[in-house]
Nucleic acid binder design. Sequence first.
DNA 1: AGAAAAAATGTATAAATATGCAGAAAACAA
DNA 2: TTGTTTTCTGCATATTTATACATTTTTTCT
Lengths: 161, 161
Amino acid sequence: MQKTKRLLAIEKLITEEEISSHEVLLKKLKGKGLNCTQATLSRNLRQLGAGRIPDGRGGYKYFLPDNSGNLPSKAAKIQVLPAIREIVEAKGLLVIKTIPGNASNTAFYIDNTSRFEIAGTIAGDDTILVIPRDGISINQVHTCLEIILPGLHEQIKKKNI
Amino acid sequence: MQKTKRLLAIEKLITEEEISSHEVLLKKLKGKGLNCTQATLSRNLRQLGAGRIPDGRGGYKYFLPDNSGNLPSKAAKIQVLPAIREIVEAKGLLVIKTIPGNASNTAFYIDNTSRFEIAGTIAGDDTILVIPRDGISINQVHTCLEIILPGLHEQIKKKNI
DNA sequence: AGAAAAAATGTATAAATATGCAGAAAACAA
DNA sequence: TTGTTTTCTGCATATTTATACATTTTTTCT
């Protein structure tokens, strides 16, 4: 799954460094063994919701609007991820199973990332229903979840061995 | 003073409507009798710190990063503006004179707009020292103040008649 | 597995945006 | 005022970014 890796790398790069153009980003990615073209980058940046603003020194830089206002901290993420046991599709929706009692934390976390792809969530005790926005495929939601919670799918695989 | 008007109009337009391109903005401005070219717009948008992000529906839109987190309300602005009596340059800095006791409110307001042009302020009882960032001219600070407090300079003229 | 559908990607190019330069306008000084 | 300097602007164009289309890759279904 090349794209997911790339998306994650892009997120990391534009938050940690001042990236001034697609071209620069392209080279940085190439340096990490993630090759693609400017066209793909353009699409990926849009998908990530990445924007561009003046850098205050005559140039421009890319950035990710951080929904981090009320976003759970990195620490929270570390708690959320291991609580997830399983993800299943049902009727065009995603059902996430968690360790008992952890559904609402997890759903809260997902909600607060304010990803466009996700219309909303409903949580019980150990089950979360994730409702994708119209026009968003299940796969897109998976990618989205992977962005929110890097390592998610790999972890689930392991649990199910 | 055509530029100031234009800057204000641009700010208003991109915060109140979803502007998708320079071209669209150009037409809206034309509608208000403010004519210019795309080139000028490009420069103005940079000066305003305006950025562009995906609009979540396949397109893009311009926006102003709102430093409004702790920005005084519009109401506060209405109180701040009339308290300002005079603006003088001194040694590459700006000295703002206010009605007695109003300096710190006013300085607080200016600080919290987080304009790039202004490195910081120091306030006494009726006097504020505004320190422009290196490389920023006094005129640029004036423009900046006019953006923060529309009508400022016109008001000062009247007071001094 | 193999067929069918969906998603991802590259290529070429269109569209959008930024900028060097020169002239115009405005601010400033005396 | 008049000359001087700074800022602003448009024009033409370079640069950058987005996208239509064709192809490949990945998923989904049976």
